[in-house]
Amino acid sequence: MEWFARLGRSTLQGLAGLGRAAYLLVGALVARPQLKNIPLTIRQMYVVGVQSLLIIIVSGAFIGMVLALQAYTVLVDYGAEESLGPMVALSLLRELGPVVTALLFAGRAGSALTAEIGLMKATEQLSSLEMMAVDPLRRIIAPRLWAGVISMPMLAIIFSAVGILGGQVVGVDWLGVDSGSYWSVMQAAVEFDEDIMNGVIKSLVFAFVVTWIAVFRGYDSVPTSEGISQATTQTVVYSSLAVLGLDFVLTALMFGTH
């Protein structure tokens, strides 16, 4: 009996949370776009995009290098080192670029967004906006949401590009795969629409989900130091799980049937 009551209660709480999250999204996005929001969005792109660049570039380079190294040791046994290029490029473009970028973004920018909005709530800045007849969903949430959705795919593209260059450094310059075949076999195997665009679409979906979770967790947080730290952790955990789960679904939809 008690067990059912608990199940029912948590189901209701979950649904109420989803409702509040949807309300936040509608309030932030369906609102007529305002010109005043553009500078705010640019500012947030600086915070979530530019400030994440370094970690994205460094991680991209290392992952590309490791991929090339690992793939080479397998491929060389079959005399198929020429396939190093497509191996590195396809892994990055289809999977690692969007997914690792989203995970890094959740840890680097998502958690910061949650903490920032939670603190704004705790210090009554959000209430204060309300009292100034300014809708915090439009002024605080919307620019952050847009900035995240725009920035993350750009970061993922940069990540993949840097990773492919990193793969060339290890594969071509270090392990001695022919430079011409690294690029030309890659070019033959990689399709712009199929591989690059699908990767970008994946990244867009991740960007939307991760940023949504981050701003909602902040906006819905209990405005105490404990509540904010909890919300921040939840952002990282929930968005990572959401990214990995969605990645499977999207991969099955995009590349699953051939």
Binding site: S127, M132, V134
Partner: peptide, 28 residues
């Protein structure tokens, strides 16, 4: 037509004092 001075002040921490005071004017 109303205004509230919050307990903590609730100044926007990411902009200067000038911009804080200018905020409602620019907004409305």
């Amino acid at each position: 037509q109303m205004s509230m001075l919050f307990q903590s002040g609730a100044l926007f921490t990411d902009i200067s004092v000038f911009d804080n005071v200018a905020y409602p004017l620019r907004e409305h």
